[in-house]
Amino acid sequence: MAKHHVTTTINGEPVEFLCSTRQTLLDVLRDELNLTGSKEGCASGDCGACSVMLDGRLVCSCLVLGAEAEGKSVETIEGMAEGDRLHPLQQNFLEDAALQCGICTPGFLVAAKALLERNPDPTETEVRYWLAGNLCRCTGYDKIIRAVMRTAAEVRGEAS
């Protein structure tokens, strides 16, 4: 079957790839482009491990077709740190032990970054509801929520 030729931007770099009609954006990222930081926990939009930004919108990349990325801009976990400088969320996830096994971590980081960009001063309840689409089976969420709240406070310039 003929493949689709897709021109897109990933983490600020122009990227071209070929994909079949049924390949999801997650499949393309992982299998064609070797960007395995986005994880597949369910392939049905229920776990959030595959979270990426598509033209500034938070999406489950397992629910987007690779072909849909045509002309769009994709941001993944691999683009979150700037050079060797971690994003404050990444740094605080480390300091606050907001990960145990770490399989959910890329998804949580991408989703939390999207939250703080639209709402720099979320309440605990707002953080919990925003992240309700991201499953973590290890942490009980406590340290994840704390790390996000602390980052928000830091970014706002408040002492934590």
């Binding site: 369910c42 049905s44 919990r128 509801y129 992240l131 309700a132 991201n134 499953l135 969420y141 929520i145």
Partner: peptide, 13 residues
């Protein structure tokens, strides 16, 4: 699947 086998999510806790 995680839709119908419902494990706790952040907003439950």
């Amino acid at each position: 699947g995680f839709l119908d086998y419902r494990i706790p999510v952040a907003s439950d806790l």
